[in-house]
Amino acid sequence: MKQKVAYIVLITVLFTQCKVDPEIKPALPANDIRVVVPEGWPKPHYNFENNPLTKEGFILGRSLFYEPALSRDNTISCGDCHQHFVAFANAGHSLSHGVNGQLGNRNAPPLFNLTWHPYFMWDGGINHIEVQPLAPITDPLEMDETMENVIAKLKNKSNYRKMFKDAFGDDSITTQRIFRALAQFMGAMYSYQSKYDMVKKGKATFSAAEQRGYNLFVQKCAICHKEPLMTDFSFRNNGLSVNPALQDSGRMRITGDPNDRNKFKVPSLRNVALTSPYMHDGRFETLEQVLDHYRFGIVQSPTLDTLLQNGIPMSDQEKQDIIQFLYTLTDYEFIYDKKFDNPNR
């Protein structure tokens, strides 16, 4: 615990130092909660059609996101494994921790630009942003709770009835409303203001190394990590050895198709400098390790992606240039946006 506190303090200090504008934004200007589709981006999958994005819905969703009552023993909230300061990934945890210190099977992915996701989880098993939270809430290795109990607990907390009324017109608490409020909060996590985005708009320029890195990225990475979302949302076997303790077959777990063995969803590279550890089981701690895997570590198997049959050759200099470029994908506007923080902390 002490270590954790020290860690958080350290991170806070680091972030405070490099923070450009330390001024705290006003709590929640109404026009701050809105549907965003940056210029040149594809049409989102989820457009809030049946679940209009409102300030009240967002606030309720945020409260639920940071609500430990969503777990069986009231100890873990969504925000414990999805931390704002690392783009809602889980800092320092290769696998998620559940109630009673249980260890999950996969690395908690970062959360942003979720309305563009056609499906969720590393194996794509969940087809809609609204029903995604059901998995972590009910998984025995994660929050291990039932929706029935969650609703009962929320009903006993004085502030929730008012928040549901503000968000949905009356104070009844249902699974649909819980999920839709969470979809409003998480769906409004937009990350589109990195240096890379500013360069694309002509409002900033890459350094020489960043530009070399970007050119290499386009050559070597961008088929799978497709711009502007930095993923094509496909499932691919990227040549990782199978972790014998986990025996995770990835996409095949969902489809039952042996052709999908060891395939996982291509993650977005936005904010990648913050979201260590990497891969579905969090096996790599640094971007260097990740790129070295593509250079030297590809394991041959029948479902290995055709693009990776010979790995991704690159010199040491090229590797460093690519990493310089990857750092430009960090979106400090998103990371420092106070509206995503736990309001009760």
């Binding site: 098993g125 809609h128 809430i137």
Partner: peptide
Amino acid sequence: MFWSWSTG
């Protein structure tokens, strides 16, 4: 009557 890990 709803699978959480594989929607349906």
